[in-house]
Nucleic acid binder design. Sequence first.
RNA 1: GCUGAUGUGGCUCAGUCGGUAGAGCGAUUCACUCGUAAUGAAUAGGUCGGGGGUUCGAAUCCCCCCAUUAGCUCCA
Length: 587
Amino acid sequence: MKVIYNDGTVKECQKEEELHVMRHSAAHIMAEAIKRLFPDAKFAYGPATDKGFYYDVDLGEKKLSDADLMNIESEMKKIVKENQPIKPFTLTREEAVKYMSDEGEIYKVEHIGDLPEDAVISFYRQGEYTDMCVGPHMTYTKGLKAFKIVGQSGAYWKNDKNNKMLTRIKGIAFPSQQELDNYLTMLEEAEKRDHRKIGKEMGLFMMCDEAPGFPFFLPKGMALKNALIDYWREIHTREHYVEVSTPMIMNRRLWETSGHWDHYKDNMYSTVIDEETFCVKPMNCPGGVMVYRSEPHSYRELPMRVGELGLVHRHELKGALHGLFRVRCFTQDDAHIFMRREQITDEITNVVHLIDEVYTKFGFKYSIELSTRPDNSMGSDEDWEAATDGLKSALEKLGMPYTVNEGDGAFYGPKIDFHLEDSLGRTWQCGTIQLDFQMPLNFKLEYVDEKGERQRPIMIHRVCFGSIERFIGILTEHFVGKFPVWLAPTQVKVLLVSEKSAEYGQQVYESLRDAKVRVELDNRNEKVGYLIREAQTVERVPYMVIIGQKEVEDGTVSVRYRDTSKTETMTLEDFLNKIKTEIKDRV
RNA sequence: GCUGAUGUGGCUCAGUCGGUAGAGCGAUUCACUCGUAAUGAAUAGGUCGGGGGUUCGAAUCCCCCCAUUAGCUCCA
């Protein structure tokens, strides 16, 4: 594909650049279409994205309907058909400001002000539309082969919520209709993996209007959650963690000491008890700190690894709620590690290994971010620097690739975040490791060192799953509800070919139940094919045990596998041994 | 919180121009007693998210809430 640069040169662009250029030009073509339909529109940013493009536009009072979006799409098709040439030109800063001011493009004028002094200010024109842009672009509008407007949303100017909200019109674009269709099909497939849909089908959890953002775990979802927790306890015991449970509601005084009152007040629920304000915990750390402070400690006890499956509540904005991914109450698989300064690297290394072990177990790929000091934070520059260096050096020693997320740390310390992907490729923060010098200081935590002197410990806050709720959402999408046996809410379903074999079916069911297998008996009077269909495709049960006259006579079971649809006949004892081993080994 | 969309039996959805609701699945009952992805028939189930308003009459039109949803912002 030929592209034109802002100095007017035309050349073949790199293959990997093509899509990006095409999508960027698509944004310009959309802008031209919008301008034709809404001449008063003022344009802000209109970049290419990884799947398409968008343009943020100020439409004044005008609200776009779906019909408007369709009109924009049709107008774009016309512009493509007209095959307008796309041509660049440059202006001096003064000329550019004047030109954009004359056009009423206030956002472009502001943008020029943000550009560096020596920036070349270039424009691209196609047909009656001109956009300030560095390019490069396609040479003609006909280069845009396959696209679709997919929606609109609000978006703040420069992504700052203090600025005006503009209308973001979003499209997708591909080199061919076939690829566009494939992408749309992929979206449909992704929708089938959505944990909200699967959660409903499988009876894992529910939401109700009276409790927005506060999920209900149903018996099936609870079985899954408990299986995860059993696993969590096992590996944490192995790693010498102890477990505590701290109160849900504590006096405001405590939250003032911890700094939450100043830094997190808007997200905390509170209540009045005996005329004093109490807050519902949004984090577990102050509770963990109180546990540590309840008795004196020797350096010999450190590091102290104190775990807590803590249910926290946070007032999230209602527009941010999203299934189990973003809720207002969730269970953190938390732990606070109290340690000496020289233990930092070892402890962080251990935690990184533990998180890696957990994610690898489920076959997750993850990315790591290091988040540094935010604006609204407490503590000294030296402590922040030491803490940030501590995290950095641990990651570097481990050879873990990571990106830096400036200013995104917790208010009490920097953190390493682990991000997992959902079915649509959106990433969600799950695990996190936060290094904290502040909480020990605020609560005057101490230990006695080998010389008998009082020292201040350092704290790590860390989670593996992050939020068990979010993690279950990710797991559900990852496995499309087809959980491994050890996690599956129902591990075995006993299906009867006819009522004649009900008695033996009941015996098989009871044997499995006695062996602590999560088993159900489907004794509805239906054909076995019908029972299988539901067990396999809706309930996604890993093993279906089919009982008919043959099994009654031979004293065997016919086992159907969810993942292969294959069947195997074996003795009940063999099946019990097989499934018990699989559950125990968590394969 | 902001911008747009949506809200109809347990679930998925239809309902035209305003004339007081339909289907499929599921559930229940009956018949069949069946061999690895849907047996047939019958029955029950809804003040159409909530509250106001317009109208002789509202699921349908208007207003205000609530919830869900795609994003923005924010976050585990």
